[in-house]
Design a protein around this nucleic acid. Structure first.
Length: 420
RNA sequence: GUGGGCGUGGCCUAGUGGUUAAGGCGCCAGGUUGUGGCCCUGGAGAUCGAGGGUUCAAAUCCCUCCGCUCACCCCA
């Protein structure tokens, strides 16, 4: 038996209401913030990600789905959404558009990881990018969009966490301070923190080991090492967030895993959420486009895990309406009736009404049961008598009542009743 | 990549050494002529994750592998 590959899953018909609900809300929120949709390819040149995400990051080191195509070119299934959008920005000369360019995407993301709760090898991300404006006002706008989306989805008890990790100007000094702080306590740190010390000191602040907690509490904070420009950016951002009434938590332990982030980083996660609960994460990436060979171009954005959004929706039992149209089932007795039934079903479809033929070579009882199991709104019954009279029986499955109707009137009649 | 838990019809579960593996949900069909939902009856559907071992006898005990799941690393 074939099964969906590890870490992937089918979005079954019964799940579709969540997906269309989330997509609808996302699209309308993005629209109100002036963000337009962009779609990029599902795979890109491997180098695009290796260069921007960072050679030393786990994403590049061990999580990319990379393959050579038949022409020998190394391609990679998109492991994140920002770099492709920046590539498209450059490729299509979007710097001539009014800046910042505001776009959003909704697409599958691939990472070769061990799956667990809230983590998959293929998942869907909704993300936004605002490219071409360094102003903290844009950071605030992007953050507010993300927050608005979660509230409009109906998610409660979410936390917005923000931090600033500086830029190429001031971060080196901070990293030095952090390393010298930790250098004296190396033998007291956990095994993972030893490798963090070497590979990615910022992540020392994110250790979940209890024994490391006291060191984190006393560690130097990046916001205290910000250079003039970064400090100004950080102060203004917070002022903008406050003035729009957004409640946020400053957390100096918040760091992000991708190398391209500068200054602002932020996350939205459910209160008391487990380990893989972050629903939305992003930040500013002022050096990314330059790294792609473009001119110095600032940008800010976030990625949001749609599966995690939906998991939260279900947990909070937020009401999500099923917008599927109820069906009309056409039940026929005899070959002649089937031919008449096909015509009627097609006529209904032509008027935008969902209609299906009941499975053939079954008793009427069985066809009725079928209609009932599909939660059909009406069943149209056609037998010999109806053929002769040019009529059908229209049965209301909710009321349990039925009446004989001339074939020429059936579509109008159903249209008016479905409209109710 | 590392560690824990778990694998019984499509789904949920009983069975923890002894005849044809049990039940619920779902599916299909019947309960007299062309009528659903409730009820009743019946049917289909499982090489008990796979392979090997112990035993007179294995879903049940042991080993290996595979899969799922949770956690770590890391991330949405």
């Amino acid at each position: 038996m074939y099964k969906a590959p590890r870490g992937t899953s089918d979005q079954l018909p019964s799940e579709q209401k969540y997906w269309s609900y989330v997509q609808d809300v996302i699209e309308s929120v993005c629209m109100t913030y002036g963000f337009d949709r962009i779609n990029t390819p599902i795979f890109e040149s491997t180098a695009l990600f290796a260069r921007t995400v960072g050679d030393q990051t786990d994403v590049v080191q061990k999580e990319m789905y990379t393959f050579d195509d038949r022409g020998g070119e190394s391609l990679t299934l998109r492991p994140e959404g920002t770099a492709p959008v920046c590539r498209a920005y450059l490729e299509h000369g979007m710097h001539v558009l009014p800046q910042p360019v505001r776009v959003f995407y909704f697409c599958p993301i691939f990472r070769y990881e061990r799956p667990q709760a809230g983590r998959f090898r293929q998942h869907n991300q909704f993300g936004v990018e605002a490219i071409g404006d360094p102003d903290p006002l844009v950071d605030a706008e992007v953050i507010q969009l993300g927050w608005d989306m979660t509230t409009q989805l109906g998610l409660k008890k979410m936390n917005l966490v923000i931090n600033s990790i500086g830029d190429s100007e001031c971060r080196p000094a901070y990293l030095e301070a952090l390393k010298s702080y930790y250098a004296g306590r190396l033998d007291e740190l956990c095994k993972d923190c030893h490798s963090r010390f070497e590979r990615n000191p910022l992540r020392l602040l994110d250790c979940k080991e209890e024994s490391c907690a006291p060191f984190i509490a006393g560690a130097p904070e990046s916001v205290q090492y910000l250079c003039e420009n970064c400090k100004d950016h950080w102060d203004k951002l917070r002022r903008y967030l406050k003035s729009s009434g957004l409640e946020y938590v400053e957390d100096h332990r918040l760091v992000r895993g991708l190398d391209y982030y500068t200054r602002t980083v932020f996350e939205i996660k459910p209160q008391g959420g487990g380990s893989q609960s972050t629903v939305l994460g992003g930040g500013r990436y002022d050096g990314l486009i330059q790294q792609l060979g473009g001119p110095v171009t600032p940008g800010v954005g976030f990625g949001c895990g749609v599966e995690r959004l939906i998991a939260n929706l279900k947990e909070q039992t937020a009401l999500v309406k099923d917008h599927r149209m109820r069906k009309i089932v056409v039940a026929c007795l005899g070959d002649e009736a089937v031919e008449a039934g096909i015509l009627i079903a097609n006529e209904l479809r032509g008027s935008g009404i969902s209609s299906v033929m009941a499975p053939r070579s079954r008793s009427l009882k069985s066809q009725m049961r079928y209609a009932s199991n599909l939660n059909a709104r009406f069943t149209i019954i056609i037998g010999q008598d109806e053929i002769v009279n040019q009529t059908v029986l229209l049965r209301d499955m909710d009321e349990g009542s039925q009446k004989e109707t001339h074939v020429s009137e059936i579509t109008n009649m159903i249209s008016s009743m479905v409209a109710l």
